[in-house]
Amino acid sequence: MSLDLLLEDGVAHIDLVSSAAPADLQLSGVGKDFQLRRGTSVRALDAVDLEVGHGEFVALLGPSGCGKSTILRLAAGLESPTSGSVTVGGNAPEEMARSHGLGVAFQDHALLPWATIERNVSMPFKLARRTVDEDRVAGLLELVGLSEFAKARPRQLSGGMRQRASIARALVLEPKMLLLDEPFGALDAVTRRRLNIELQAIWARDHISTLLVTHAVEEAVFLADRVVVMSARPGRIERIRKIDFERPRKPELMRSSEFHAVVDELTKSLDDHDEVVGP
């Protein structure tokens, strides 16, 4: 992390993360072009430098089309950068995926409709050709409050419950890096807030290095250690805001004035930038 970005928030602190161990996710000078028809291409990302330290929760915040999902897909090894480099735990993301070190959850829960919730959550064990750790699966289902629904099929569950199952599946192999792409994006506001609180509690136990993509400012501020604000066309990192609220964070935090001050500040920086770019 560069010094001016640190200073931007008015707090000069020593970045322990990057000086101690290598970051769990590291993007250096990443650019990404998508080929359109007839040889033209569009630049989705430009000169992105980003890292997620060990045990850190980073939220990517920005308007739709700013390339935040592309960053997540690069980290997941689903895309490769046009320029620059992406590493997860010092390795190529594809390699990390092959050694089953990544956990992922998308807006679409992507549970297998023919399998029970229990079998869905234990699927990563099967893909890794390991014996299913029944206790681990049961414990996770307990943690996300789905123990009673272990034998249910996804279509019998509500949207929020499916997302809980999807997150349990992402966590089951204790991944080195957790990637969340708008996991609560399709839920109603009340359910979303409740799941944010739950995710916060789950995350506080293990501190798995996490990259969350979202367009909800409150969600980003409540969950993250750092919020990365992005702008669109081409996708660039606009600013990075450190969030210092004490952990574990309680639901009351969302009603505090300090919390709202940060949310307002970040909302403003999103809006400001929109004015500059927008027509």
Partner: peptide
């Protein structure tokens, strides 16, 4: 199969046969 399903399987490190 949906694109998301394929993506989830890729990220979870699934081989072709799995």
């Amino acid at each position: 199969t949906s694109q998301t399903h394929r993506d989830v399987f890729t990220v979870m490190g699934s081989g072709r046969w799995s």
